[in-house]
Design a protein around this nucleic acid. Structure first.
Lengths: 342, 342
DNA sequence: TTGAAAGCGCTAACAC
DNA sequence: GTGTTAGCGCTTTCAA
């Protein structure tokens, strides 16, 4: 089985010859090492351009004992969320000269840790990006850390130099303020998956906004959820069963659950948004496809993944920037699912 | 910048030593070449197991001048569709010992062909999987073929040994039959993107089903679309503007457009599904999050990608199975967005 | 059917 | 700051 496409590319030797330097100097230039005289560097760069030289990944890996490979593992939380994460992680990896492999997996398989550690051997990854819900499994993460696998955690529910998060409290606060400003006083809240860091934080923001408005949080207005459409729907069923006491607005911790609220409200024959305002988090494509279009808090998902990869690569390359990352910001996207209480 | 994780894995030499054979024999065994005496093969396999030997990708690539790398290029048609495609392609690649890189790109950048051809040099991919809408750009594909880049095309609108499709005509037929069986006679149809192979085929199925039921297709019941939510919505606006003449059911060529139809129907104050039945294609997660939940034709998207990769790899490895692939089947998923006309 | 030897293209270590 | 040399771990001749 011969290769179908022979590359016949220029090698480092040809570049060195043309530039009149040694191969080692070419290597130094292509690797961005500082100690090369500017004139030599320029000659090498000219030769590289002229010969359209691309260093062979295989040779670099073999000689340098590094794979230039990262993996991102996930257990699909939601297609659009995941795709955004992929895009951000890919962009940063690419920018830094790394390739990124995606590794879908199941959170609940018994030896997931071994499976992931195995990635360091078989494809030979240098580091692993873990996205929710994998990044929330404390035991898993401890196993991986013990195995010396460099990690980047996206939005985990605990601290660590390798974690990158979002300012969920502020987002929960801002979302609630939007509803308060519209005039709502009975605002229902549907929590996210309890394992996820965002969940308690968003709830804290909600409660703080209520407090600032002089309102005491009512436990009967707060329902658990799991980030799924179905969990949102059943939470809405409970919240809306309270007759005249029911909330005039519901804030769901993500768009999928908000879709569940909307479905349930339709089922109950409520007129939206007049009889019930609904909000979500994420600004997924879904938000625009619901009826009415969903007001939601948009989060910079791709940016989060990009940052996670950047920090991972920084650490891999020795820059000990181990202080925690500053949380990224959200913003409100107003659509038609919210209005003053009717 | 030293490697952070030194692998210190067993090499082919140690395996050869333990098995009492030459490295070449080990190589033959690990590559599944036939001409090795069973007893030697057994000894090698024992040694491989015992030493937990994994051949080094880098060394294999360098010596064998192959990268064991494939890429899949796409311009996000819809998150869940894409994720399914990714999953199928990944599964088959992995099964065959290949890694798969994802390459998101923009259909309309001027030198997309060069960008993709570049993938054969820089990461050094051996083959490229193209998914819609990239697989529909004839000029692009011709450039890539001319560059000798082995291709797999997912659902392109034209023939070719490297194309894998779905039986869209049958699907359009089956969907229409479902609506006819419910008793509908005025059935609107929203076409897919004109570039996409599926579009005319689904429409053909729709018209054939109508014909079989003794109905003449009415051009005023057929609207163009582009697979997007917005295009579905504006098509619905047109179709539903016909007063008493309006269709009692609308068949949209995908779920996103069906979501647009539903949004428009809600806007118009129609009661669904009694006053309007709606159907889509794909069975995306979205279908379950709409109100009412969407009846739709489910397609084996992951399977399609898997098949595309299989055929690509077969060709790369010399098996000239160049006859066209048999189209894959759909099936109907009944939910609540369709009912007898009321 | 099997093995010996010669690289694949690059980087590491060490000299200069 | 720069060059030389010896591999990295495998596959490929080609000979036996």
């Amino acid at each position: 089985m011969p290769p179908v496409r022979k590359s016949s590319r220029a090698t480092i030797i040809q570049v060195a010859k043309r530039a009149g330097v040694s191969t080692k100097t070419v290597s130094r230039v292509t690797n961005g090492e500082p100690s090369v005289r500017p004139d030599l560097r320029a000659r090498v760069e000219e030769a590289v351009r002229h010969l359209d030289y691309h260093p062979s990944l295989a040779a670099r890996s073999l000689a340098g004992r590094r794979s230039f490979l990262l993996a991102m593992a996930y257990d699909n939380p939601s297609p659009s969320y995941l795709l955004n994460l992929q895009a951000g992680a890919r962009a940063e990896s690419h920018f830094r000269g790394y390739r990124l492999l995606f590794h879908p997996c199941k959170t609940d398989v018994p030896n997931l840790a071994e499976e992931l550690i195995g990635l360091a051997d078989d494809p030979g990854i240098e580091g692993l990006v873990l996205s929710p819900p994998l990044s929330t499994r404390r035991a898993l993460i401890e196993r991986l850390r013990a195995a010396q696998l460099p990690l980047a955690l996206i939005a985990p529910p605990f601290e660590g130099g390798d974690a990158v998060t979002i300012d969920d409290e502020a987002a929960g606060f801002a979302a609630t303020v939007h509803l308060l400003e519209l005039g709502h006083r009975r605002i229902g809240f549907i929590c996210g998956h309890p394992d996820h860091a965002a969940s308690p934080q968003r709830r804290r923001g909600y409660e703080r906004a209520l407090g600032d408005a002089g309102l005491a949080p009512d436990p009967r207005l707060i329902e658990p959820g799991e980030f799924s459409f179905e969990s949102g729907r059943s939470a809405a069923r409970t919240l809306l069963a309270r007759g005249r006491e029911r909330p005039t607005a519901i804030l769901a911790s993500n768009d999928d659950m908000a879709a569940g609220v909307i479905a349930e409200a339709h089922e109950l024959g409520l007129t939206l948004p007049q009889e019930l305002s609904v909000m979500g988090f994420d600004d997924a494509p879904l938000a625009q496809m619901l009826w009415p279009p969903l007001t939601t808090m948009s989060q910079p998902i791709a940016e989060l993944a990009r940052l996670a990869v950047r920090r991972l690569l920084d650490r891999l390359q020795g820059a000990q920037s181990s202080e925690a990352a500053t949380p990224l910001a959200f913003h409100l996207v107003r659509r038609s699912s919210t209005c003053p209480p009717g």
